[in-house]
């Protein structure tokens, strides 16, 4: 396969870098955080606030090092927040105030 093609980092099919990476096949339980983020995304989808495609676009725009460092649902909450800010459903000022609230 051509190594010089400019694939995006989330576009992983067949990438030789992972050819020898073992797969962790043990069961992993989702945390309460994971489940809440998952459900929140569904609600925002059903209410027409954001599509799953927007979620993916936001995940794909996370820089590669962060993409690999963050857990699955940590990527999601970052993408959801980015999308809500971009579309004006929340403002930076509102988010900053909410983050600083005790």
């Amino acid at each position: 396969m051509d190594q010089d093609k400019p694939r995006a980092h989330h576009d992983m099919g067949g990438v030789p870098r992972y050819a020898c990476e073992p797969v962790d096949i043990a069961p992993h339980t989702l945390s309460d955080f994971d489940k809440e983020v998952d459900a929140l995304r569904q609600v925002l989808g059903l209410k027409g606030v954001m599509t799953v495609d927007e979620l993916r676009r936001g995940i794909e725009s996370i820089p590669e090092a962060d993409y690999h460092r963050l857990s699955y649902y940590q990527r999601w909450i970052r993408s959801i927040t980015d999308t809500l800010l971009r579309k004006g459903f929340i403002t930076e000022d509102e988010l900053r105030a909410a983050l600083e609230a005790p």
């Binding site: 093609k5 400019p6 694939r7 995006a8 099919g13 067949g14 495609d53 993916r56 676009r57 794909e60």
Partner: peptide, 14 residues
């Protein structure tokens, strides 16, 4: 399209 700016595509590179 990755070379032309922000995009979201569902056609794998391979």
């Amino acid at each position: 399209p990755e070379t032309r700016g922000p995009c979201h595509i569902r056609t794998p590179h391979y």
